[in-house]
């Protein structure tokens, strides 16, 4: 089905668990199937499907969801890494994933829909059953929160690198 890949991609990032995400998408598509007579022809089918999924996701509640993905805290061998220029373009995937995992469900939801899936703010408002203004502010705050976490991560990494470097020199 054309939208099942997008649904699964977003579900995996929301639930942080592949099996739970598949269950969520299956439930979404079955609910859509059962209530297809409620879909208004000519309206946005993608937003409708995601609305069903987010309703199911929020209905499950945190307890029913899986534990967050465990991320290794072992620092990679940063001493071997080349110096990174300022800016975000070279931030590695692990750092982005870790920062993204730390965001709230609400911020992850708008970033996944708006940034990754290319939803307009109006489509997000439809999918999340929220006013446009709330979507816009969540998107701005979500972007800022991600940047703050990445900046903190970079600063921590730099401090760890500096400490490791000075320890190496002393040895």
């Amino acid at each position: 089905m054309p939208h099942s890949r997008s649904l699964l991609r977003v579900a995996r990032r929301l639930t942080s668990d592949g099996a739970v995400a598949e269950d969520l998408v299956q439930e979404t598509l079955l609910r859509a199937w059962r209530s297809f007579d409620q879909f208004e022809a000519g309206t946005n089918i993608r937003a409708w499907l995601f609305r069903i999924m987010f309703n199911a996701f929020y209905a499950q509640g945190r307890q029913a969801r899986s534990a967050p993905v465990l991320v290794s805290l072992d620092a990679p061998d940063r001493a071997a890494e080349p110096e990174r220029p300022a800016g975000l373009s070279l931030i590695d995937a692990a750092e982005v994933n870790r920062a993204f995992e730390e965001l709230s469900d609400e911020h992850r939801a708008v970033l996944l829909l708006g940034v990754v899936e290319g939803f307009t703010c109006q489509e997000m408002a439809d999918a999340l059953s929220l006013p446009m203004g709330t979507v816009m502010s969540r998107l701005s705050r979500g972007r800022q929160a991600l940047r703050d976490r990445l900046a903190n991560g970079s600063a921590k990494a730099f401090r760890a690198h500096a400490v490791a470097g000075s320890a190496h020199k002393e040895a």
Binding site: V25, S89, V116
Partner: peptide, 22 residues
């Protein structure tokens, strides 16, 4: 825009096999 692009690139690289769900 740069951070958006990086996030999009990383999430779109996730392996999503929809065959089982379908």
């Amino acid at each position: 825009a740069r951070l958006d692009g990086r996030l999009r690139e990383i999430v779109l690289a996730d392996k999503t096999d929809v065959a089982r769900v379908d």
